[in-house]
Design a protein around this nucleic acid. Structure first.
Lengths: 240, 240
DNA sequence: TAACATTTTTACCGGCTGGTCAAATATTCA
DNA sequence: TGAATATTTGACCAGCCGGTAAAAATGTTA
């Protein structure tokens, strides 16, 4: 494993919860009702974090429809009605979770710099995304589940935030193409390909482990993946 | 679109059902009980096909847990008990469907020839896989859903059939590496990368359409995808 | 057509699901 | 402390879920 490179990447937080930030979406949690934002209680903060952590665990495993409030409540170590005291519905939890994690999920792409070297920027992006697949597989599967189902809960977010971000960064890649540093192509497909290849290692984990005969806690193939993907995207796979 | 290339690829059947072949799995359908294989009735054949087609539609949209027997029955234009006359349980339908489609799904990889030119063989594989994403997105999402959930119903198939096939084809790629035609790497990651990038266009369809602002029936981006992926895997993306 | 096998339907069931309600308990703060 | 507020709980519900049983209807074949 390339620890040197790993250290050079932005740190990925162990838990994405516990930070501030208001809920969004269709239904506000009880504490958010009213026009004025009331100060959150200590208990509120910790319990909402516990619920979102539990929801991440359950939703990422079973998908939205497969998940049950009972299981989330059990995982959060509280009763179901108590859970519904903090979030008004199952949908509400799911939307809050996705919304809160979307920024974290898109952070690597945000780091793509126009003034950097194309090779270095793309390599860093791949490494960062791969690191997230390894360290945050639940988040990856959460989004995979949601998008597979047609993005019924974050459709608007995709059409606004994601659209803007991708096209902003695609412009950077386009400038590299214009400078003759990349082959002419729709730069958005470059981004798609990096998403696909890196997230694949989290989303299709079981399949990969079946083919590679890797135990559940064995992550040694990530080093191979990083080297291979770098080679692939740097145009050094096929030789003349 | 490259119709020339498309025509050169093996035809993909409109419907994968209606062919012969016994069910496998834990629970046999009613008609399969007993040691001797009874001849299937006309009605049996058509109804089982209708059920599997309906199940593909529903399972690929909602996943296993999100799908309901009522919805499958409605889609198959029959009553729920009638449906359960042909398949003994929801699980039974799901397993029968996955088992029956697995061969179709792996066909492109089976076509990889050792005696072909690496560039040509890989290009063909990418094109064939991409064509399947475009024409059989439901099948793609069916498998994506199943693997995301930990492959609880086709775990054994992955550890046997898929393992064997991938490693057999990986040996071919390895021979190309040994011949100096490809950069040294674990050839199984080459296969993973092709799976990931091509299936991404079916599994993350909504996301892609959000970013590209494509209507539901607009598939024009597949041409771009094919050209880009070919460029990528042929090592012509990044220039010196 | 009569005897038989196959297919379909109607009625039903227990368990789980998301969610409600009111009462009980814990916490905060004047 | 005590009143006000925030939190937790247990009891409950209507609707949906996968699945069953048995009879009715349909098809097959001698």
């Amino acid at each position: 494993m390339s620890d040197i490179v790993k250290d050079s990447l932005p740190a990925i937080p162990e838990t994405a919860f516990g930070d501030s930030g208001a809920e969004t979406g269709t239904a506000d949690s009880r504490a958010e009702i009213g026009t004025a934002h009331k100060q959150k209680t200590r208990i509120q903060i910790t319990n909402e974090a516990k619920i979102l952590e539990a929801a991440l665990e359950v939703f990422s495993k079973d998908g939205f429809r497969g998940a049950t409030l009972d299981r989330i409540a059990t995982a959060a170590e509280m009763s179901k009605p108590n859970l519904l005291y903090y979030f008004s519905s199952k949908e509400d939890i799911h939307i809050a979770l996705l919304t809160k994690l979307l920024d974290l999920w898109l952070a690597p792409l945000r780091n793509l710099r126009a003034d950097g070297d194309p090779r270095e920027e793309l390599s860093l992006y791949i490494q960062h995304k791969l690191q997230m697949s390894r360290q945050l597989p639940r988040e990856s599967r959460l989004f995979a589940n949601e998008v597979l189902r047609g993005a019924q809960h974050i459709g608007p977010l995709l059409k606004e935030n994601l659209y803007d971000l991708v096209n902003e960064k695609a412009a950077i890649i386009q400038s590299w193409i214009d400078a003759g540093k990349l082959a002419p192509c729709d730069p958005r497909h470059v981004i798609f390909a990096i998403w696909a290849t890196t997230q694949h290692y989290a989303d299709f984990d079981v399949q990969i482990r079946s083919v590679l005969r890797r135990d559940d806690d064995d992550q040694s193939h990530y080093a191979d993946a990083e080297q291979f993907l770098t080679t692939l995207f740097m145009g050094q796979l096929v030789k003349d």
